[in-house]
Design a protein around this nucleic acid. Structure first.
Lengths: 227, 227
DNA sequence: GTAAAATCTCGACCGCGGTCGACTTTATCT
DNA sequence: AGATAAAGTCGACCGCGGTCGAGATTTTAC
């Protein structure tokens, strides 16, 4: 049972991912066909499906590497002594900035991560956990500092914040939020409310208040909600 | 400019939607091909694309009718005098039950609604607004009753609750939540926290607390989060 | 060493969603 | 009414993601 076979398999796998990174980066996910990918990786198309169940799975493998990098960069930039809100907003915006760097790419990523198909469920969960763990760390530190009540249920808060992140992303793709600045204001307002209850905005610093009011106007005009 | 043409167009449009309702219901969205749909509607395949930009757009048109019905049923069942939390959970669960009635259908719906493509953006926004308006009504009534601080920013709260709904849906597709019962417990915990702050669960009635603790255990085991 | 079994590779092939331009039907103009 | 323009219809056709089984390659058994 010499490792010849195993070795080759690893090579092939790497060749596929490398080709995917190159092509997806160069021309995007949807614009890269499996035929191209196979040719670029130097294998038959069918072979790819021995390594990945679907095109989306390759996509997530590709994301894994990229996200790793983005998170590392973010970690370096985060100020652990900043206020909880600032840190949370920073993480959320880091993630959002990364995802929406390319709009089409981000939509696929968001769709696959938030509502994964059976093929991609496990892989997307892996990726998700990195982000959730990050949130957990930030919250844990805040709890130690006393910035968060000791009896807070951290897991629930993590879920909560994750929900807000998804919402902001969704707002970007629904057209309610059209710039990263607005996304940030939105994030901040939501986080404030999550941490300090429904009346938090009314007590927030003036710049947050006014920023939100402006956004609010845009929402109402765009969506014609009856309020 | 007799209306002959316009009349025919309306007929054709209706024929397409009718066929879609029949086929999507019978065999599902993905299992219905555009060729079949065209044949069933009695038109050429190309004709359909004169009425809808993409298969997904037909899907959303199909949903519109179904959702209308589901909401009406829900409205009839909702107790306007129940507590705010109960009403919110009821609406969220109504929506979730509807969406996940068929798993594949629900995933497409959720993906298209949360991260719409350029083709389906406007239509998905229309649908979204119905749900948001419902939330607004419930919150507005609660504010009048004094169950919600007068200075609460309703729009922000609506956004917040919408985020929670999406999260619960996402948890179902990620495999974190595997039954409607669990979804309900999750919903309730999240809503409580959203309305009463991060420490709300610790003060919740015992059954909510214990239900959540059980769910929490499942999460941790499944996801192996470091907490 | 060799035969049998297990594994991996490949590209022709499938059905799909979506496009295109030739064709038919309706509206408009004189 | 006849001619021209405009609008609508259609299915052959395209490239796509994914499958399949024949054939090549490695492992195992003797």
């Amino acid at each position: 049972m010499s490792g010849v076979r195993e070795q080759k398999k690893q090579q092939t796998r790497k060749a596929i991912i490398d080709a995917a990174v190159k092509l997806f980066t160069e021309k995007g996910f949807e614009q890269t066909s499996m035929d191209e990918l196979a040719r670029a990786a130097g294998v038959g198309k069918g072979t790819i499906y021995g390594y990945f169940k679907a095109k989306e799975e390759i996509f997530l493998a590709y994301c894994e590497a990229e996200l790793e990098f983005a998170f590392a960069a973010l970690d370096r930039k985060i100020d652990e002594e900043a206020s909880l809100v600032d840190q949370l907003v920073a993480y959320m915006m880091g993630q959002i900035t990364f995802v929406t760097e390319n709009r089409e790419f981000g939509r696929i990523f968001a769709r696959e991560m938030t509502f994964p198909g059976e093929n991609t469920r496990l892989r997307s969960r892996d990726l998700d956990m990195r982000y959730l763990n990050k949130l957990g760390e930030v919250l844990g530190r805040a709890q130690l500092r006393g910035e968060l009540p000791a009896e807070s249920e951290l897991l629930l808060l993590i879920a909560h914040l994750h929900a807000l992140y998804i919402l902001v992303l969704s707002s970007i793709y629904s057209g309610d939020v059209t710039s990263l600045e607005n996304a940030k204001i939105f994030c901040r307002s939501l986080v404030l409310q999550a941490l300090h209850g429904p009346a938090a905005i009314a007590q927030a610093p003036l710049d947050v208040q006014s920023g939100w009011q402006e956004l609010r106007q845009q929402f109402l005009e765009q969506r014609k909600l009856e309020m």
